[in-house]
């Protein structure tokens, strides 16, 4: 696959993944309201284009790292939705066997380290994955997702600098959704773009419309080319917006309503659907079929999760050491 040659099948596939991300979050939202899921959850509706655009440029063996907001990353990377849903239900068939939960979704064998819920905690880990790829002479890369908030924690500086000086095969992806919890980016950062900080490490920094999935794919594609050919990391900033509150319990009153409304006008899933149908790449009928098949897949995932066994209490004691 390459940037200039996204064919119809690939585009339809990316669109389907985005719909899957969106509808997954919608289901999870209601499952939480109904009290059927334990714990807390940080949802990613509105950020599908960044998740899918990034992961569409990855190949088998590449690894992503993620954050407290990992649902779309996991889906975009292609983890089975059943195993994600089962994890949210705290079932033993979940991708972390019920030990991880929403904030730690992942499955390394399928290209995703368990998500890291410590802000910035995944940046050194991705860098380490890339060091292992380089050392072992593998052609793979690490793709490291983090938020705008993470750009202000020490690990961001320490790890990106290492990635840069050692020319590691890693792409640092900042999903700038304008807020870290209730805190607006401009309150905690003097530069306008996170990507400007790349200059401090001597690597390219690029800011891209994070709601345009093909733009994200193209930018990610060039960053992966650089990474795979030994030229080192790129800091990719994807400008986007979360439609929900920060977490399950957050009504989001700190965001101006006009701002939320303006971003909802730029809904990445709707934008892509319109682009694909306008360009005649998908017929309306085909788009509808995608929506229907996603609904069906999610229906089955919820059923699978609900019917799966819970772990035993004593399973708490296993997996501490290898």
């Amino acid at each position: 696959m390459s940037a200039s040659t996204l064919d119809k099948t690939q585009k339809a596939g990316m669109f389907r993944r985005m719909v899957l991300c969106r509808k997954f979050e919608e289901r999870v939202y209601y499952l939480f309201l109904e009290g059927r899921l334990p714990g807390t959850v940080h949802q990613s509706a509105g950020q599908e284009a960044s998740a899918v655009g990034v992961c569409s440029a990855l190949v088998e063996g590449d690894v992503i790292t993620s954050t407290h907001r990992p649902h779309s990353h996991a889906i975009a990377r292609g983890l089975p939705v059943k195993s994600l849903m089962a994890e949210l239900f705290a079932k033993s068939t979940g991708c972390c066997r019920g030990k991880g939960g929403s904030m730690h979704l992942g499955d390394l064998a399928l290209g995703m380290l368990p998500a890291i819920a410590i802000v910035g905690g995944g940046i050194p880990l991705a860098t380490g994955q890339a060091l292992a790829f380089q050392y072992l002479g593998r052609k793979n890369i690490a793709a490291c997702f983090f938020g705008d908030g993470a750009a202000n924690i020490g690990t961001f500086h320490e790890a990106i600098n290492m990635g840069a000086i050692w020319n590691l095969p890693v792409v640092y992806i900042c999903e700038n959704n304008k807020y870290g919890a209730s805190t607006s980016v401009d309150k905690v950062m003097k530069v306008e773009h996170v990507s400007e900080r790349a200059a401090a490490y001597g690597i390219p920094g690029v800011t891209v419309d994070g709601n345009d999935v093909e733009a994200v794919h193209r930018a990610m594609w060039s960053a992966t080319e650089r990474a795979r050919t030994g030229s080192g990391p790129t800091l990719l900033e994807l400008e986007t917006y979360r439609f929900s509150g920060h977490s399950r319990s957050d009504p989001g009153h700190y965001r101006p309503q006009e701002e939320v409304a303006a971003w909802k006008q730029r809904d990445p899933v709707a934008l892509y659907e319109k682009a694909l149908t306008d360009q005649g790449i998908l017929t309306e009928e085909e788009a509808r079929q995608i929506h229907d098949s996603v609904e069906k897949e999610l229906e089955e995932a919820v059923k699978f999760a609900e019917e799966s066994p819970s772990p035993a209490a004593e399973d708490c004691l296993s997996d501490v050491f290898a």
Partner: peptide, 16 residues
């Protein structure tokens, strides 16, 4: 608590 990290699943957390 036993010498394990905190597990997610409520059934394990209650045990923990």
């Amino acid at each position: 608590a036993p010498d394990t990290p905190v597990p997610f699943a409520p059934v394990m957390e209650r045990f923990y």
